[in-house]
Amino acid sequence: MREWGSDSSDAAALYVFAVCDAPDPALFADVPGFAVGGPLRGLRCGELTAVVQTVPAADFTDEAWQARMSDRGELERYARAHHHVVSAAAALWRTVPLPLATLYHGEDRARQALIAETERFRAALKRTADHAEWGVKVYAAPPPTDEPSPALRASGSPAGRSRPVPGAGLAYLDRKRGIQARRERRHEESLRVADTVDAAFRNVAAEVRRLRLHGPELTGTSRLQILNATYLMAENRADELAPLVRELRERTGAEIELSGPWVPYSFIGEV
């Protein structure tokens, strides 16, 4: 099953999902990996064990990934499979996830590369031991509807354009200034709410990473994301999170989304 022919069309590559301090590599056999590959297995790399899968090299070339990144369904299948294996390993052992699409030509190459990084893996394991990652997203309400957008107003009321009443230009400018001022106030308020929520979580977290804010293409237009952050939390403090979110919702009136516990993906790399 693990042997692949030497013919280039079915040449094999070795996909590495994660590295962990697993005592028994054989236990990986029950977890599914990518549908196209062989069974998931452990690869002993010195004192650590890598979670690996032999996959058809042709499906994991740069070209194949470029095509995959244009196909939402495909990318989602691969992303979720990767995430599932990492999470399954982390459920059993202390685990360092590797980024999506880490591939080697074979076991020897992988073992050689991973053993060379043993110290970094050990440091990451130590830093994240007994901790989990929790994502926090905060959304503000959209602008009130009594404030028409510039785009809508520009396309409307052509009558006013051809025959403006005296002082129409000035009124227009005043209106524009009013909209701008309201927008700035709303923006400042959003930043204040984001800071309040962030500060409260920093208070209970070991580490924090701010992620890029999601634009409306991800959040929809009915709400505005004002904080996207992720926190490394000691596992024995996880029960403080739900009450904290409730309290912050009441205090700020903002919509707050908590996701987790995640394998501490965002806290593995040295920063």
Partner: peptide, 30 residues
């Protein structure tokens, strides 16, 4: 809280923003 299975209903963007090059950067062969 422990073990960590990862949120069951996590959306794709949440997963992607974590698995894209966020771990230790290890040079692969490919």
């Amino acid at each position: 809280a422990c073990p960590i299975p990862g949120p069951p209903n996590s959306n794709l963007a949440d997963i992607l923003e974590r698995i894209l090059d966020k771990g230790i950067v290890i040079a692969g062969d490919i």
